[in-house]
Amino acid sequence: KEFRPGDKVVLPPYGVGVVAGIAQRSVSGVSRAYYQVDFPGSRSKAYVPVEAPHSVGLRKAL
């Protein structure tokens, strides 16, 4: 896996977040693995496909 729990990442347009782990989510009846990204200071979460994280701009924070 490219990202691990605890990694600081950037996800446009949300900003800097932390990978909380990998979650299985069902979309249109198909279960897939997603990185769960939490954003400190907020209750917001984002789910990014493990198979294509760069397709939505997910990258490691510098």
Rank of each mutant, 00 (worst) to 15 (best):
I22M: 05
L62S: 13
Y34H: 04
A52Q: 07
Q36T: 08
A20H: 08
V50E: 02
G57P: 04
A52V: 05
F39E: 01
P53W: 15
L58F: 04
Y35W: 05
P13D: 05
D38P: 00
L11A: 02
Q36A: 09
S44H: 15
F3R: 01
G41D: 11
P40E: 09
G21R: 12
V27T: 07
Y47V: 02
G29K: 03
I22W: 03
F39L: 03
K1S: 13
V48S: 00
A46P: 02
K8L: 15
P49Y: 05
G17V: 02
G15M: 03
Y14H: 08
G17R: 00
G6K: 02
F39H: 01
E51S: 09
A46E: 05
K60L: 15
G17C: 04
V19M: 04
K8E: 07
S55M: 11
L58W: 03
F3K: 01
G57T: 04
H54G: 09
D38T: 13
F3A: 02
K8A: 08
K45Q: 11
F3W: 11
A61C: 15
E2V: 12
I22V: 06
S55V: 09
S42T: 13
R59V: 09
V30W: 04
Y47F: 11
A52Y: 09
S44W: 15
Q24W: 14
V50T: 04
G57F: 04
V19A: 00
V18S: 06
G6T: 04
S31G: 05
Y35P: 00
A52M: 07
A46C: 14
S44Y: 15
V50I: 09
P5K: 13
K45C: 15
V56E: 07
V56K: 08
F3D: 01
P49T: 04
R4M: 14
V10S: 06
P53A: 15
F3T: 00
S55N: 08
Y34P: 01
S26N: 12
Y34V: 03
A61P: 06
S55E: 11
K8H: 11
S44I: 15
L62M: 11
P13Q: 05
V10D: 04
G21H: 06
F39D: 00
Y35D: 00
P5I: 15
Y34L: 02
A23N: 05
Y34K: 00
K8M: 13
D38L: 14
R32N: 06
S55G: 08
G21C: 10
F3G: 00
E51N: 09
P49F: 04
D38R: 12
S42N: 10
G6M: 04
Q24I: 15
D38F: 14
I22T: 06
Y35S: 00
G17A: 01
V16T: 07
H54W: 12
A20S: 11
G41E: 11
V16A: 10
L11F: 07
L62V: 14
V19H: 00
P53K: 04
K8Y: 13
S28C: 15
E51T: 08
S31A: 09
Q24V: 13
E2I: 12
R43S: 14
P53R: 06
Y14L: 07
E51I: 07
A61H: 12
G17W: 03
L11W: 06
L62G: 13
S55T: 10
D38Q: 12
F3V: 02
P12M: 09
D38E: 14
K45I: 12
R25H: 08
V18F: 11
A52R: 08
E51P: 03
Q24E: 10
V18Q: 03
P5V: 15
A46V: 14
R59Q: 08
D7C: 09
Q36W: 06
A46K: 10
P53I: 11
V18P: 00
L62E: 14
P5A: 11
G6Y: 02
Y35H: 01
S28Q: 13
L58V: 03
V16N: 08
G21P: 00
S28E: 12
G41P: 13
F39T: 01
R59D: 04
V30T: 07
F3M: 04
V37Y: 00
E51G: 08
F3N: 01
R32E: 05
G6C: 07
K45A: 12
K60V: 09
P40H: 10
R25G: 06
V30N: 06
H54S: 09
Q36R: 10
F3L: 06
S26G: 04
Y47A: 01
S31M: 14
V30Q: 09
S26Y: 12
V10Q: 05
V19P: 00
